[in-house]
Simulated scan of single mutants.
Amino acid sequence: MNSRRRPLVIGITGNIAAGKSTVMRLLADRGATTIDMDLVTRDALRSNGAGFGPVVERFGREILDDTGEIDRVRLGRMVFADPANLRDLEQILHPIVGGIGRTLVEEADTDVVVIEAIKMLEGGRSRELCNQIWVVASDEALQLARLQETRGMSEQDGLARLANQSSQEWKIQQADRVITNTGSVQDLVRQVDEIWLSVVQAESR
């Protein structure tokens, strides 16, 4: 790709356990700088992070573990059981995490930056940062199985997470590209390669 003052920024989103992180890793292998907004959020929630104080003030010290850090499982159960709690958490964290994301994009030294975030579209401002939005879509039964197998969630917790999301169909309507992750790993790699090649060719013109 040609060097450019600002990189092409691709936003990767989709519902939980759809395969976003796998797609992001594949794009990293192809030369993109990748930013995992879930990891950025985790850092913001640490005791030395910008989100720690406001979140503890809102949800109480009962969300802390024995070391004084936020227990993300306790916090998750609290917010995913109550839409109002989830909205409050997002209102606290989105400005903080968004600011960190913009800084990381500015610091990137590659021609393509990939940002992965589950709530990329809901705020209505994703196009301010991202040139393209790619949605990773999957089947809800597969997503639930992945949550149980890879994250150790109970069926109840997994279903609660799945229920507290924007619809996959709505996200697909907002997408520039859609990657369907319901088949084999080889099929997923093929889709990523095809889209990546088209992006490389378009940016090289």
Rank of each mutant, 00 (worst) to 15 (best):
I12Y: 06
L142D: 08
L64K: 09
E116L: 08
Q191C: 06
W196V: 08
Q143H: 06
I133R: 02
L8F: 13
M37D: 01
L147D: 04
D109C: 07
I195G: 00
G11H: 07
E62N: 09
G99T: 10
S138L: 01
A117L: 11
E140I: 15
D71Q: 03
R25N: 10
E106G: 06
Q165L: 05
L104N: 00
D88I: 10
S198D: 11
L86Y: 08
M1K: 04
I133F: 07
S198Y: 00
S21P: 02
A32I: 06
V9D: 00
A17D: 06
D36H: 11
G183E: 11
I133L: 09
M78A: 09
N2C: 05
A175Y: 09
E69N: 13
I96V: 15
G14A: 02
E203S: 14
R30Y: 08
V135L: 10
G99D: 06
Q174K: 11
E169I: 08
L121N: 02
R46W: 05
G49V: 13
A137G: 03
V136K: 06
V200C: 15
Q173I: 03
I115R: 01
P54H: 04
D139C: 05
I16N: 00
T13D: 10
A137Y: 09
S126L: 06
L121Q: 03
G152M: 04
R125W: 12
V113K: 00
V178K: 04
R177N: 15
S138W: 02
I96D: 01
L86D: 03
V105T: 06
I70L: 06
P54W: 08
E107F: 03
Q174C: 10
Q148W: 09
I35L: 12
F52E: 11
R77L: 09
E116G: 04
L27P: 00
I100T: 13
V200K: 13
V40W: 00
L142E: 12
L8W: 12
E203Y: 01
R151P: 00
E149V: 09
D193Y: 00
G124D: 01
G183A: 11
I70Q: 01
S3F: 13
E140N: 11
D193A: 03
S138M: 02
E107A: 15
R42F: 09
R6E: 08
M78Q: 02
S138N: 04
A44K: 05
G19C: 04
L159Q: 13
